[in-house]
Every structure is written in C-alpha cells, then in structure tokens.
Nucleic acid binder design. Structure first.
Length: 830
RNA sequence: GCGAGGGUGGCGGAACUGGUAGACGCACCAGACUUAGGAUCUGGCGCCUUACGGUGUGGGGGUUCGACUCCCCCCUCUCGCACCA
C-alpha cells in the first residue's frame, strides 16, 4: 500500500500501534481494582477456545466489547474487562493424537499465539486476571464447587445410555456420531449403559424459568429459546388401571378437558410395563419385535421430518377412570419415553397425531370439545380440532367451557384419588461425565468398603496425570492410566479407584465470569470482590450459545448464591448476541474455504482499520457481510483524518483562542460538532449501533474538512476547528484507540486521550439557526424554504402560499386546510 | 407445524414517538493533478424522462392531510425448536 503511493502520505500504523500497545502494557493502563474511582462496570466477551489463531468472529466480538469498555471508562466507570481461555476440550486431544504431543502443550502454545494476536488488536483487557480453565489453578476451585454441590445433593450418579464406539473404546459425544457411525473409524456406534454424574439443574427449573421474566436486557429471542428449552407444561397426571392385572399405567396430559374423548392409549416402545403386558400373549414375539425395530430406528436417523405414524395393538386394555370405559393399549412409534410418563392417552378428535393414528388403524374418533356454532363428527372430521370449545359426551362436565373443564376435571381426579395436577419440564438433569482425558477430573474415589467417596477438599486438586497412558499416547482417557486410577480411600485408607471421567467443558464456562473477579483467591470466590463486580453488566457473544452456555451459567450463578459465594441470582444483566461474519453468503469456515485471516488484514491495514471496518459494516446484532473494499474504505477514512490533522498541526498546536464573535461558519461547525456528540452518544447508549455512530463522525469530519480548506480557513475560528478535531478523536477513540491516542498527542495535548472524559454535549450549541421547511401540496413535496428557527406558523403558511413552485401546483384551486409541523413541514391540502 | 426476526438503490446499510426515503461507506461515471493511476482531490449517482414531471421501501387492500413506519390479507428469506401428549 504505502509503497507505491509516492504522492500521498499514509499513516504509519505499524509504528503507531506498536508504540501505544507497548505503553499500555508497560503502564498496565487497563488494570483495575475494587478501590478505583467511579461506579463499577463489568463488560465481558465470551472467552475463546484456544484453537490456534483468532478468526474474524473473534475480531468482531472483541472489537464490540472493547468499544463498550473504552466508552464506559471515558464515562467515568471503573471498568472490569477481562479475558481468558476455555481451554479444555476435544480439539486439543485430536491435535495431540495427530501431532503426537500432549494436549497441554498444544493448548498453551495456542494460548500464547492467540494472546499475542489479541494484543495486536489493541484490546483493553486487564491481563492480570487472565484465566485458562485447563490450569489446576482454575479447576481446583471447580472441584471444590463439585464437592459443595455433592454435599447439598445437587450432584448424583445414575446409569444412562451413551454412544459407545467399540473399536475406539470410547464414548462419543452426540456430535461425533455421524449417520450412526463413529466419526473417526466409521464403525457403528452402539448404545451402552454407563454410570455417569449429573447436576440437578431440574431443581432450579422453576426459578430458571421465572427469572427469565426479569432479563429485560436480553434479546427476546434468547429468552424465548430458553423458555422453550425448559419447556414447562402443566396438566393432569392420571392413572389408568390395566384390565385383569393389578398394575396401572400413568399418563400425563395438558388437555384433561378431553379425557372423555380417549379412545385408546399409546405407549412408548421402551415403556417399562410393556414386557409385563405382553407376558403370556401369543403375539408377544411379534410386538416385541415391533418395539425393538422402532427403538433402533429412533437411534439412527432421527432426523426424518415426519415419520409415518405406526403402531401395534398389545391385546390388552385399561380402564378410563372417569367413565369406566375399556381402552385398548397400543405401542406407537411417536410416543417418547423421555417426556411425561412415556404413555399417552389418545384423543384422536383433538390431537392431530392421535387423529392420524386412529384413521390408520380404524379407531374411534370421538369429539368432546365442540367449538361454538360447529358440529363435529368423528366420521367426517378431516383433522383434529385442538382449539377451545364447550364440552360434550363428557358426563357431569358437559356444557362447561374447555378452560373451566380443565380445572374441574383435575379437581375431580384429585378428589377420587386417581390423578393429580402435575407440572413437567422438558429440561433434563445435566450429565457432566465425559470419558476423556482433557478435562477437569471429577474428584471422587470408589472404595470397596466405603463405596463412593468424594476426595476431601484438602487433597484437591485432583490433577491430570502427565505420564502417557497405555496404548493411546498422551490422550489416553484416565481409565487407561493405572497410575491415576489406583489410590487410597479417604475414609478407611484401604485401596480405592479414582473416578476416571472428566467434567463436561461447559462446567468451566459456567462460572469463569465470576472467577475473573478474584483469579488468585485460594477458594472458589472471594465474596467481597465478587459482590463488588458482579453481575456482569454487559455480556457479548454469539447467539449459538443462547441455550446451553447461558442456561448453565444462570444455573451456576444460583448454585453459587445458594452456596454463599455471591449475592446475585442472575449473572448477566445485559446480553448482546452479535451476528456472524459472512462471506459470499455463508459463514466463514475452513470447510467452505471462505475464511479471511485477521492476521493478514492487521498486517496490511493495521488493527484500527480492521476494528473500524468490523464496527462500521453492520450493527452488532446483525450478520456482517465481509467486504475487502469496505476495509479499504475504513483505511481511507483514517488516512484522510490523518492528513487533515497533519496539515493543520500549526493551527491545532497553537494555544486555543477565540477571535471575538464567531462568524456563521464557525457557529455552524460548532453546531455540527455538538450534534455529532449527541448522536454518537445516543447511538452507543441506546443500542451499541456503532455503524451509525461512525457515519455521524464521518459526516462531521467531511463537513469540517470542506470548511477548513486553505481558501476558507480564515473564516473558521481556531477554537471551533480545534474543538471539532478533538471531538472527532474523542468520539473515535473507543473504536480506533491507537490512532486516536497518536493523533491526540500530535495535536499538542499534554495528557493521554485515555484519561480524557467523553465530550460534553452542549444542547444550545447544537440548536439549528436555520431550518429547511418542506412544503407539500396534498402530501407531496413541492418546494423547500430556508427559514430562521422559531419562525411563526402563520408567517410560514404565508411564505408557503407565496412560493412560486407551490402556486404552480395550487393552480388557483381553493385551499381546504394547511397543516404545519413544527420545524419540519407545511402541507397544503386542496 | 410452532416460535422469533427480516424483505429499502448495483452492494453493506440510514431514516427519532407517522412528517424531506436512500445518511455514511463501497462500487460505478465524469473531471483535475499526473510519465502513469489501482493513490489523492472535485463533481455526479434509485428507476423512467432531453426537460417539466412521473414513479419508488416484497405484493394487495385499508386508516391518514401525509405511511418504510400503524391495521388486515398474502408471498418470501434467515434463525431456533420440532411427533413434548
């Protein structure tokens, strides 16, 4: 760039950025403590996985966060802005296997490299608070939290089905199962029952749901997604006795008002009562075969959009407790064992799935909720009716509305003892066991005498062994490392085995934001520091974490509160979910080959240009379309500012003086300056819309530079010009910090721009003297008038009517009325 | 299917509680300076029209003096969730 442009001066971003980065690092400009001046403000971007190098998504995320941090500092806040590494996880293991190294080595190398890259972007982090979750200085305290949760009964073990690859001898995450096969060896994956640890997040389901109502600073989309994920429904749990048996089936329904419309009952193929029901039946083998087939089909491609309804009659009946009817029991492929009770009362008239099933197998369709003014007949219905209505064919509940009937029927069931009101959630307890090496060890031992024993706090941390495991190199899971497994029981000192599972990496990211407040404390959290900084005032990250990470973090915050470590219920007051970086219509990704490496861009244009472009191209919550020319544009703008300031240095460095009464051009510049301060401040405060903020600064600069050309320079007072230049730099400084700092210095200011407050908006200075009033005839713009602010309405009307262009359109027709909108327009209606 | 959010020039995007549609930037066109221009500077730039003017914010209706903005219907795109009983 700079090389072949002999005639044009380009600013030396390399030298400037290095100079200021060095200064910030040396002086620890962005280190903070609890005792600093000002109200606290905690801004946080989601920490990265140390995958190797930073990508444009990081640049965008951290640029946004950095503007917020720098802006808030200028507004006088004591700003906490930390950074760290979500450093446990699979890619490190894969890379280690591939390169025959240790995952720690790979991870720490990446951290070093990425940290260097982040520093090159000029991000204002307090690096003294850096956290790497794979460091025992972090997971030690996570293990303590595990113990505390264990003591409170918030952690438990149960056997569940996992994806097992027999050839790799390991459990796979769901994402690693591709079309039913292992992603690495392509062998079929089998379900396998394994013992695992669970966090009792369901204990907090109600609070996690209820508190969503108070998250006003979160995007509604995320709140809705979480609400759906928790999936609360209320209804009736009801017991149906099985005919000629002493057993019964319980069902859950959200539509108790339709219970008289039940014409069959559907069981999930995995339902535990099924074997008992079939015992002795001559069709036992056939039905079991059907159930088995459905189960395997489900395990495989569960992605078919609409699976055809399919089922089989068990030959058994149960009794509807409300009317004593005999109800045939079916096994159906669309009933989920994981939700409700795994058994569904089928009401074909009012549920589309049941309707399709009933039609296919010739079962009765009996309407019991009748919408107003309509007659429903089972034989003629074309689809289920699921709306409200009046009850019919429902015994004592006939003629109640469906809403009334829900309560009445639940009350009846409770009175008669065969059912009760129940609330169910879709949310499951959080399974945290991973049969992997590169994670935080679960601090538990198994003793032959004493059973499951948590490792005592004073023996923590349980650290990852550094020696190689048998066979699989540095990444062998812990169960293949004898040196790790064998230990002694903390209770009886007899021989014991360590738990060899590690924790889900989402556990680390569920509380790191709290640990930043006290990264060196010799306990999970320092209550005093946590209380000072928490909650995070502004959290920024990708929407892909809308559910898991954000839900787990909310859960952990409530746990930390109940353990006495914090006094907040919610971790993130405001959440900004930034859009993706797109190129050629698709998300940047290696597989699509459309990645742009920020490293190259910073080398070519400098960090400030890259930051400016990513902030300017789109508002933060929207996807950002990558544009090479757009970067050029950002670069050109900074260079124009640079050349302007360099060209006016003699003026700018002179002591500021005001030369008597300002003339029109100076007042105009001052007006534009203050209008821009107002606009930029508002854009940042209300919506973080940096794109419009930047365009406003560009407008100010364009105005200023056109006014202050050589010929016109004498018309602009020095102080008006200086104020405009200072304002441009101050308003830009959160976005292009090195550039602003350098130019500030070159303008002759003594202190650093870092220490300057955000410019003060002067309402009076921003007031327009002249207004352009639009003149409309019948709502169409026909002319414009320049008038002094405060011109009387009647005068305006008169001027409008006299206007030549307007008269042409009036054509002498009578004027019906004239509408005057203050400061905006006059509309003449004829 | 359910939920959420969008559709504005060639492109990214502006437009406050209804009041100048297209700010700012990119691309493009013309000119200037130049051996040169892919640098820089000046001007132009929704569409139709020589001009006057007409027309225009996914489509159709409506409310209003006036609609990108409010109401109704429809089309379409993106993102979640998805047989949740």
């Amino acid at each position: 760039m700079a090389d072949n442009t002999a005639n044009t001066i380009w600013y030396d971003f390399k030298a400037i950025e290095a100079k200021w980065q060095e200064k910030w690092e040396k002086e620890k400009t962005y280190s903070v403590g609890e005792d600093s001046q000002g109200k606290k403000y905690y801004v946080l971007e989601m920490f990265p996985y140390p995958s190797g190098r930073i990508h444009m998504g990081h640049v965008r995320n951290y640029s946004i966060g950095d503007v917020v941090a720098r802006y808030k500092r200028m507004r006088g806040f004591n700003v906490l802005h930390p950074m760290g590494w979500d450093a446990f996880g699979l890619p490190a293991e894969n890379a280690a296997i591939k390169n025959d190294t240790h995952p720690a080595e790979w991870t720490y190398e990446n951290i070093d490299y990425m940290k260097k890259q982040l520093k090159q972007l000029g991000l204002s982090y307090d690096w003294d608070r850096e956290i790497a979750t794979c460091n025992e200085k972090y997971y030690h305290w996570e293990q303590i939290l595990f113990l505390k949760m264990y003591e409170k009964g918030l952690v438990y073990q149960k056997v569940t089905s996992v994806n097992w690859c027999d050839s790799c001898q390991t459990v796979l995450a769901n994402e690693q199962v591709i079309d039913g096969a292992c992603w690495r060896c392509d062998q079929p994956v089998l379900p396998r029952e394994m013992n695992g640890w669970f966090f009792k997040i369901t204990d907090y389901a109600e609070e996690l749901l209820a508190d969503l109502d108070h998250l006003d600073g979160w995007p509604e989309k995320v709140v809705t997604m979480q609400r759906n994920w928790i999936g609360k429904s209320t209804g009736l749990n009801c017991t149906f006795e099985i005919e000629s048996s002493d057993q019964s089936i319980s069902i859950f329904t959200t539509r108790p008002d339709t219970i008289y419309g039940v014409t069959f009952l559907s069981l999930a193929p995995e339902h535990p009562l099924l074997p008992d029901l079939l015992a002795g039946s001559d069709r036992q083998a056939e039905i079991e075969e059907f159930a088995r087939r459905i189960i395997t089909e489900k395990q495989r491609g569960r992605h078919e959009d609409e699976i055809v309804k399919e089922g089989i009659f068990t030959g058994r009946y149960c009794i509807n407790p409300f009317n004593g009817e005999r109800i045939p029991i079916y096994v159906a492929n669309f009933v989920l064992m994981e939700y409700g009770t795994g058994a569904v009362m089928a009401v074909p008239a009012h549920d589309q799935r049941d309707f399709e099933f009933a039609r296919k197998y010739g079962l009765e369709i009996r309407p019991v909720v009748i919408p107003e003014g309509v007659d429903l007949h089972g034989e003629t219905m074309e689809e289920a009716y699921s709306g409200p209505g009046i009850l019919a064919n429902s015994g004592q509940f006939d003629s109640l509305s469906s809403t009334e009937a829900r309560e009445a029927i639940i009350a009846h069931a409770e009175k008669m003892g065969f059912g009760s009101a129940e609330t169910t959630y879709r949310l499951r307890d959080w399974g945290i066991s991973r049969q992997r090496y590169w994670g935080a060890p679960i601090p538990v031992v198994y003793c032959r005498n004493c059973g499951v024993r948590p490792v005592p706090a004073e023996e923590l941390p349980v650290t990852l062994p550094e020696d190689k495991g048998s066979g699989s190199g540095d990444c062998a899971p812990l169960h293949l490392r004898p040196s790790f497994i064998d230990t002694t029981c903390p209770s009886c000192t007899g021989p014991a085995r360590r738990e060899t599972d590690t924790m889900d990496t989402f556990v680390e990211s569920s509380w790191y934001f709290a640990r930043y407040t006290c990264p060196e404390t010799q306990e999970p959290l320092d209550r005093h520091k946590a209380d000072y900084w928490l909650p995070v005032d502004q959290y920024i990250g990708g929407v892909e974490h809308a559910i898991l990470h954000l839900l787990y973090s909310r859960f952990f915050t409530k746990i930390l509160r109940d353990l006495g470590y914090v006094d907040i219920a919610e971790p993130f007051t405001n959440l900004l979910t930034q859009g993706m970086v797109i190129k050629d219509g698709a998300k940047m990704s290696k597989s699509k080959g459309n990645v742009v490496d920020p490293h190259d861009l910073v080398a070519q244009y400098g960090a400030d240009t890259v930051r400016l472009f990513s902030l300017f191209a789109a508002p933060p919550e929207k996807d950002l379309e990558w544009s090479a020319q757009g970067v050029e544009g950002a670069s050109r703008f900074l260079n124009r500012v640079y050349r302007f300031i360099e060209g006016h240095r003699p003026t700018l460095q002179r002591p500021r003086r005001r030369q008597g009464e300002r003339d029109g051009a100076s007042r105009e510049l001052r007006r534009k300056t203050h209008q821009t301060i107002g606009k930029v401040t508002q854009d940042i405060e209300t919506s973080f819309h940096f794109n419009t903020a930047i365009s406003a600064v560009m407008e100010l600069f364009n105005h200023m530079s056109s006014q202050a050309t050589e010929a016109a320079a004498h018309e602009i007072d020095d102080d008006a010009l200086c104020e405009a230049v200072d304002t441009v730099l101050l308003l830009l400084s959160p976005m292009v910090p090195h550039f602003a700092a350098e130019m500030w210095q070159r303008c002759g200011h003594s202190g650093d721009i870092e220490n300057r407050p955000w410019p003060q908006y002067d309402v009076d200075a921003a007031k327009d003297e002249l207004l352009t009033i639009v003149i409309q005839v019948n709502g169409k713009v026909r002319s414009r008038l320049e008038v002094a602010a405060g011109t009387d309405d009647d005068v305006l009307k008169e001027m409008a009517l006299k206007d030549e262009k307007v008269r042409r359109f009036l054509g002498g027709k009578p004027v019906k009325k004239i509408i005057v909108v203050k400061k905006k327009l006059v509309n003449i209606v004829i």
